[in-house]
Every structure is written in structure tokens, then in C-alpha cells.
Computed example of a mutant assay.
Amino acid sequence: MTTPEAEPSESDRTQAEDARPQGARDADAHDESAPEAAPEAQSRPEERLERAVRAAEQALIEFEIAVETFRVEVENFSRLHHQKLGPMYSRLDELDAQIAEAVAARTGDLEDIRKADEARARVMPMPGVEELFHGWMDSEGLFPEAVAMLTDQPVRPPQRVRPSDEARQLYRELVRKAHPDLAQDDAERRRRDEFIARVNAAYSRGDEALLRELSEEWAAGPVPEEWKPSRSEELYARLEWLAQRKELLTLVARELEESAIGAMLKMAPEDPDQLLEEIAEQLLAQVDEREKELARLAG
């Protein structure tokens, strides 16, 4: 039958502790007294910056969505406003011009004549065919350029280019110097391929000046690689760009809100059609008043 080992006495534990190296005892004391390091303190600075950048990017995306949504709403409301109320505004301008002209004809006063001229100038004239179709047609029909585009024909026949003797000489020299077969590695071959493509394009146009510039560029040698910022510097630059982008969007949003159409839309964001109905009723009342006044002047 086995017996349990005797419990070590207090003096035995003290002696054993004294026998341990001082460094081990100091390490135990530090582990017992020091609190556990926070996860945030253990993470790299780049990780905290990356989290900040991701949060800023997400916030900017949501802000852009809100601004773009409001911009589309303003644009749609502006289109409806013009379609529904534009004729009424035009009618009001025409009636104002006729009233001013009737007053000027009755009084003959120079000031009344000036006001009549200004009122007539405010009346929007009907656009011509050229303006409506943005240069695609006139009263005679489609322009030749438009016909060519619609029938997949070249707008203008290609012109033959005959490079000068100097251009031919520059071209030959550049091809001899920059030919891709002279490359020593893949990166150099890609650089030469890109450069020769530019040389060929310039020669096909007979652009002697550009060929001369390309010759000087090749003589100067490849552009040295640009200095690359560290990851932290890239993240700081990204945060700065996000902040500038947000300021720009804030200006766009403010301009939309302060515009005439934006202000009207904010008056009834849930039911803009009803707002248009109310404005239409007001304009119809004004048209009726102007027509009565014009009839009175004419009578």
C-alpha cells in the first residue's frame, strides 16, 4: 500500500525558491503584476491605418450614393418641371411682352417702349432645326457627315501622307536603335515595343516634329523608376484623398440643395407630383390674370 508524499514545509519552499535563478524569479513577478497587453497595442500601426481607410471608404461610398440619388431626383424633377410647366412659363412671358407692347403703343413713352423691348427679348424663341438636332441636320435634311456616320462610311476619305526625307531618315534611325530584338530582357522588350509603336504612329502621319521629339527621348534613356512610398505613407495619402473627395461631394450636394429645382424638391420630397400640380394651378391663375389685363388694354 502506497502512502501520499508528505506536504513540503514552508521552510522547504523558501529554500527552493531561493535556489532558483534571479532572472526566473523576476520574470514570474513581472507576469503576475503586469496586466495583459491590449490587442490594439499589439497590432501594427499599418493595421490601424488600414481599418481607418476601410471605414472612410465605406462612409464615402454611402455619401456618394446619397448625393448621386439626390442628383438623379433633381434631374428628373427638373425634366418634369420643364415638360409640365414650361409651356405655362412661356405663355406668361408672351403675355407680359404683349401687355408691355400694348402699354407702349398707347402711351408712346420711351420708358414704356424700352420695357416692351426687354419683355419681348425675354420671350424664348422657338429653336431652329439645327439647334434641335445638334448639327446633324438642317432644313435641307441630314448633313453629309451624319449620313456617312449612319451608313458606316468614313466621314472624310483618308488622305495619303507622304513623309518628308527628314522624317524617313529619323524613322530609320529610331527603328535601328530601338528595335525590340535588341532587348536583353522582357522588361526592356516591352519598353521597346511600346516606343516603336509610337514611332510607327508618328511616321504614318508624317509627323516630323514628333519623330524628332521621340529621337531626343530615346537618346535621353529610360526614365528612372519613381520613388515608391511606404505602406503607411500610401494609407495616409489615401485618407487625405478620401477627405478631399468628401469635401467635393459636400459642395456638390450644397449646390443641388440650393438650386431652384433642388429647393422646390425639398419642399415636397415624398410627393413632388403634387407640388407640380400646385405650381401649375398658380401659373394658370397668373395666365388668366394676364389675359384679362391684355383684353382690357386691347378693348
Rank of each mutant, 00 (worst) to 15 (best):
D185Y: 00
R190F: 09
D96K: 11
L150Y: 08
M137Y: 02
P154V: 04
H179W: 06
Y203M: 07
A202T: 05
R162V: 13
A102K: 04
S78A: 08
E140I: 10
A209M: 10
W136H: 09
M149S: 12
Q153I: 03
D165V: 14
K115D: 09
G135S: 06
R91I: 04
T151E: 09
A100T: 01
I113Y: 10
R192I: 07
P163N: 05
V129M: 04
I113V: 15
Y203T: 07
T151L: 05
I113R: 15
K84N: 09
R114H: 06
E173Y: 10
D181R: 08
R114A: 08
L142H: 03
V155E: 00
A201R: 03
P125N: 07
R160L: 06
D96R: 11
D93L: 14
P180M: 00
L182M: 12
R205M: 09
E131V: 01
A104S: 00
I113E: 14
L80Q: 12
E208Y: 05
P154S: 02
E208S: 07
L211V: 06
P157A: 12
R162H: 13
R71P: 12
K115T: 10
L150T: 01
A209I: 14
A146P: 09
P125R: 07
R190S: 05
E73K: 11
A209G: 15
T107N: 03
A102T: 03
R79C: 05
P158K: 15
Q83W: 14
A100E: 05
V147N: 00
M149Q: 15
L210Q: 13
D138Q: 12
S164G: 05
L211N: 00
A209T: 15
E101P: 00
T151A: 11
A100Q: 01
M137T: 02
R198L: 11
A116E: 02
E166I: 14
I99Q: 06
V72E: 12
V199R: 04
A197E: 11
P157F: 07
D193G: 04
L110T: 09
G128L: 04
Q184L: 13
R192M: 04
R160V: 02
D181M: 05
A116T: 03
A201S: 01
Q83H: 13
G128D: 08
L95Y: 03
R79L: 13
K84Y: 12
S139N: 10
L85S: 01
H134L: 10
M124K: 14
T151V: 01
N76Q: 15
F195H: 06
R198D: 08
P87C: 07
R189F: 09
D193R: 07
T107F: 03
S78W: 07
A183N: 08
L174P: 02
G108P: 05
L182C: 11
R189Q: 06
